[in-house]
């Protein structure tokens, strides 16, 4: 079961605080969408609007083409997997998972069969008789997933589902969530503040800040060519170089580059550490001295002081066989196609 979602003109206030503003978002059936942003950006509020726990002050929510704006959570084709899992501590896992079907009037035998199928899907087939308190955090998370899936939702809403897990388990559960989503084809909307999690799992990422959508797109596009300065900074480490467009050129402390379709006046040029190269053509950024270098397995992360602007410290990733030496100098280049250029001063 799966359904498309359309959010149009969603706005919501908590007192004086603008939690959501002018949200326009279309989600295809069967997509895995991640709402990404810092705490207080409105991502959880938006999920609550989808789940029906908050009725937005403005805008409409369409799920599967039907207007769900004022429909109660239980009557929506959505199910929420809550941040703290909210399992029923007095029931065993089988009863937890079969709670939804039970409310829908499914017979005991049928709902227990369904619960056991789903527990098998999440790898807990032999724990059906256990109580939640006997499980680890990761196992509870799986039970919560199975319980949410037991009602065959068209849309599954996940509120920071991996937040309570340690890093290793979180990476393993990401893959598992993705696999289960592919298998079922259900639309998943997943909230997180971890951009690595978002990139690992999402078909499309929705970057949010201060109640607004900053960027929407596939992970590689949002990472490599973000639409806003905020999205650029939130998706990962970023070099920001101040520049000024005059005519067909942008003047920067590291030399001029062709302006292309960059905005007029002061601009911020953003470049990922791995987009800085040491050979080839493109934007010649001049020579720079290596201040320090650290090995990360897949790359060396180096801090560089350009000769033209020694106060502008750049971060670059060099190949793992580069063996950079401190105080050595490099000639830096960048592909102008990799640059993200925004109006205004870099922050």
């Amino acid at each position: 079961m799966t359904a498309a979602i359309m959010l149009s003109g969603i706005g919501h206030d908590f007192g004086d605080f603008r939690a959501l503003a002018e949200i326009e978002l279309e989600i295809d059936a069967g997509e895995y969408i991640v709402l990404l942003g810092p705490s207080g950006c409105g991502k959880t509020t938006l999920l609550s609007v989808l789940g029906g726990f908050i009725n937005p002050m403005q805008g409409r929510v369409l799920i599967g083409g039907r207007d769900m704006t004022d429909v109660a959570p239980a009557k929506r084709p959505t199910t929420t997997m809550f941040q703290d899992y909210a399992l029923f501590p007095h029931m065993n896992l089988r009863d937890n998972v079969s709670f939804g079907p039970r409310m829908a009037g499914v017979t005991k035998a049928a709902r227990h069969r369904k619960a056991e199928e789903l527990l098998a899907l999440v790898g807990l087939a032999d724990a059906a008789g256990k109580r939640p308190h006997a499980l680890s955090g990761g196992q509870r998370q799986r039970v919560a997933l199975a319980r949410a899936l037991a009602v065959d939702p068209e849309v599954l809403l996940l509120d920071e589902p991996l937040g309570a897990l340690d890093l290793k388990l979180r990476r393993a559960m990401q893959d598992e969530l993705k696999t289960i989503q592919r298998k079922l084809g259900t639309t998943f909307v997943h909230v997180t503040h971890d951009q690595e999690e978002a990139m690992a799992i999402a078909d499309r990422i929705v970057v949010m800040n201060r109640g607004r959508i900053e960027d929407v797109g596939p992970p590689d596009r949002v990472y490599r060519k973000p639409r806003t300065l905020f999205a650029a900074g939130f998706m990962g480490e970023m070099n920001r170089i101040a520049g000024h467009r005059k005519g067909e050129w942008i003047e920067t402390p590291l030399g001029a580059l062709p302006a292309g379709d960059a905005p007029q006046g002061a601009v911020a040029i953003c470049l990922r550490p791995e987009q800085i190269g040491t050979k080839g053509e493109g934007w010649k950024m001049g020579r720079a001295t290596i201040i320090d270098a650290a090995f990360f397995g897949t790359h060396f992360r180096v801090h560089l002081a350009p000769e033209a602007a020694p106060d502008l410290i750049l971060v670059a990733h060099l190949p793992p066989n580069a063996r950079p030496e401190v105080n050595a100098t490099l000639t830096l280049t960048a592909d102008p196609g990799d640059l993200s250029i925004f109006a205004g001063q870099p922050r």
Partner: peptide, 29 residues
């Protein structure tokens, strides 16, 4: 904890009476 479990139960389609009888009261037993 109870409040979240009640919310989850409601989301899974339980009526207010069912939430009381199957979640709130057993959890507060």
């Amino acid at each position: 904890q109870q409040e979240n479990a009640e919310r989850a139960a409601r989301d899974l389609g339980a009526s207010d009476v069912k939430v009381l009888a199957l979640v709130t009261v057993p959890m507060l037993a």
